[in-house]
Design a protein around this nucleic acid. Structure first.
Lengths: 202, 202
DNA sequence: TCGAGATGTTAGTCATCGTTAACGTAACCG
DNA sequence: CGGTTACGTTAACGATGACTAACATCTCGA
């Protein structure tokens, strides 16, 4: 519990440390169920110290969600654009998208949880930007799925995408059931099968 | 918007009306993001009137979750026991479980949402009972899945069950994307495929 | 008719919470 | 050195919110 390490402590890490602790707390008890004092205590400082790093509680949440949604979106964009150069099959691109999302869900369950629960608590300037990024991320998936099965209406593909996210983001609920080593292939297999079933019309 | 109908108004309905409104509000803004005043306003009375019907805010939540989890559990028990009499295949039993859960998710999205987010806010006497019912519900599924593929370890089946719940409960997120008429078969197909993929070892 | 019970209302309480203010201190830089 | 910057502290302030108290009203059964 001795927090100090060097006289000049963890310099830029405080912000990240706070964001990390806040994510876990928000995921566990919800945005309004966590106080500024709680977050401070989780990183070893107390209360109003957070205002040295963030403009306020909502700003903290906004930055957190903005970071998550842009990271997701960027990872998807990277996968898709890098795949267009060679004649990569849409199926392979989809697998890459799946793997990226699975990695994120397994490594950052708290962030994933907060990301799809707490958007409503972000004030309006940033709210729109986050929604936009989320929409772009979904559309990335929809585009790939559309190539996989051109006849399928976009609404159905969107619904299927959300369903797959629901499946993959269930990770926090089954925490501890299965080690990540087994969880990853299980989720991959289930998600792939679900996507195929959705895309192959009935 | 004229709320009165007969002089002797909706007698026993007030409680149900309150629970319904509270479920929607909790789903949208989280337990701590909703005030007693908000819930009262949603049913046309104001504030402390709720204490004529519930002991408090937490008691209201407890009753809501207890009701949901026992209804789910009962529906699953009914499906399973009614299926054992004839030589119903496990696959058919699983389909019945799936359909029941899909119906619930499509008809009561708010309840489903609150059910897997807000357990942490239920005080301890009831918390245990709700957890117990949830566990029994999951075990009902696991039992059926185990018959479907005896070699599969129970932990894997449990994880798969949670993943399927995640898929089916994604309904609130894709609200409006697709009409329920199309949503139901889509969810059914995706869930069935996901279950098969999970159970057939790799 | 009248008293009881069920169901509201408004006004107040007490705790909690987000945020600001005022103040320390240690490192760095001229 | 001396002063700025970065980062903390504790003490308030104001708002909100859960819950209680005191007080109507309406329906109904004896």
């Amino acid at each position: 519990m001795t927090t100090a390490r060097t006289p000049t402590r963890n310099r830029g890490n405080r912000r990240a440390e706070i964001l990390d602790a806040a994510a876990r707390l928000f995921a566990a008890r919800g945005f309004h169920g966590v106080s500024i004092e709680d977050i401070g205590a989780a990183v070893g400082v107390s209360g109003p110290a957070l205002y040295r790093h963030f403009a306020g509680k909502e700003a903290l949440l906004a930055e957190m969600l903005l970071d998550v949604s842009s990271r997701l979106r960027e990872s998807a964009a990277a996968v898709v654009t890098s795949a267009t150069a060679p004649a990569a099959s849409s199926a392979e691109t989809l697998d890459a998208l799946l793997d990226a999302q699975i990695t994120f869900a397994l490594e950052q369950p708290a962030l994933i949880t907060v990301h799809d629960r707490e958007l409503g608590n972000v004030p309006e300037p940033h709210r729109r930007r986050i929604r936009r990024l989320q929409r772009l991320y979904v559309e990335e998936w929809v585009t790939v799925l559309a190539e996989l099965h051109p006849g399928c209406p976009a609404a159905r593909l969107r619904a299927a995408t959300h369903a797959v996210f629901g499946l993959l983001n269930s990770t926090p609920h089954s925490a501890g059931e299965l080690p990540a080593r087994d969880m990853r292939p299980l989720l991959r297999a289930m998600a792939r099968a679900a996507v195929d079933a959705a895309v192959n019309a009935r």
